[in-house]
Computed example of a mutant assay.
Amino acid sequence: MTDPTVLRTRGLTRRYGRDSGLVRAVDDVDLDVPAGQTLAVMGPSGCGKSTLLHLLGGLQRPTAGEVWLAGNRIDTMSERALARLRRDSLGFVFQSFHLMDELTAVENVELAALLAGRPPRRARQRALHLLDRVGLADRATHLPSALSGGQRQRVAIARALSNEPQVVLADEPTGNLDSAATLEVLRLFEDLRAAGQTLVVVTHDARIAAVADRVVAMRDGAFADDTRLAGTVYGGRR
């Protein structure tokens, strides 16, 4: 039988400092994320959730433990192999959008595909399709400065989907948004969940739980609670 787990950690640990200044940002975490699941990792600032996301995405190296993506151990990969993995298999969404200010929305979205060696025509078609999917087809030629916060985050989500990633990792994706823009992003995450995209979202915003299949609460670098959700979600029912 095929293992449905797409993302797995065992004994995942990240420590900073030493002796009396030792900080266990992530402390011996075991995690299994099945394909197609939307997981919300919640907790207060400083609890280790962003560090966990960076470890899952190969943006940081663990002090100890293992990280596996689709059956491949990634924490022992070379920097070059990790860069390819992040480009081809992972999509990232950040609180501050990280769009290129001098590129239009469609150019921002297609950039990842072009860097991966996709033909320009195909990359552009994919980017236009994704902008339409996130409701921004009419903003394709706009620069980020001409977009609202919610629109910029939706462009960032479209960019994260550009190379059809196995997992999308989102770090406080609503942290810089007002209430109306947050609802726009929540609706989009619910659409992605319904389409079967695997999502891991770290946040302190309880509204994210409305679009999740599962919520993990973190405290002091460890998992304090792990809850499977059922019933009502934002915009409809499961």
Rank of each mutant, 00 (worst) to 15 (best):
L31E: 06
Q37A: 11
L115C: 07
R154D: 02
A140D: 04
V41H: 04
R87F: 03
L128A: 13
G46S: 09
V26H: 04
A116M: 12
D27N: 14
S20V: 11
H129E: 15
P62S: 09
Q125L: 10
T141D: 15
L99G: 02
G21E: 13
M42K: 00
S50D: 12
Q95Y: 12
D27V: 00
R24E: 14
R80I: 06
G17I: 06
Q37I: 02
T104L: 06
I74Y: 02
A83V: 11
V134E: 00
A160I: 08
M42Y: 05
P119C: 11
A127P: 10
G150K: 02
A105N: 06
L111D: 04
G17T: 10
R18I: 00
S145R: 15
T63H: 03
V109D: 04
D27G: 07
G117N: 01
A113E: 04
R18Y: 04
V155Y: 09
L59K: 01
E66P: 00
R122D: 15
R118V: 12
A83T: 15
W68A: 05
D30C: 09
G46D: 13
R124V: 08
A81R: 14
L131C: 08
A127Q: 10
F94E: 01
G117H: 03
Q60N: 15
D27H: 05
A81T: 07
P119E: 13
E79S: 13
G117P: 07
A70K: 04
R86E: 11
A35K: 12
V93F: 07
P120E: 12
H129G: 02
G57R: 01
A156V: 09
P119H: 12
L55V: 07
A83D: 13
A83G: 06
A116R: 07
R152T: 04
E107F: 04
G21S: 14
L85P: 00
L90P: 01
L53D: 11
I157S: 01
D75R: 12
L82R: 04
Q95G: 08
R124Y: 04
L69Y: 05
L59P: 07
R122N: 09
L69I: 08
M42H: 04
M77E: 12
R121H: 14
L130E: 11
N108Y: 08
G71H: 03
G91E: 08
V26S: 13
L128Y: 03
A137C: 02
E102W: 06
S45P: 10
R159F: 11
V109C: 08
S78T: 15
V29E: 02
P120S: 13
L56N: 08
P120D: 08
D101K: 10
D75H: 08
R139C: 07
F92W: 11
P62D: 09
E102C: 00
D19R: 14
Q95C: 12
W68H: 15
R126Q: 15
Q125T: 14
F97K: 13
L82Y: 02
G71I: 00
L22I: 12
V93L: 04
L52H: 03
E66V: 08
T104Y: 06
A64P: 05
P120G: 09
R84F: 08
L114T: 11
A40D: 05
V93S: 06
G17N: 05
G71D: 04
G43P: 13
R122K: 14
E66M: 02
D75S: 12
L143Q: 10
G58C: 12
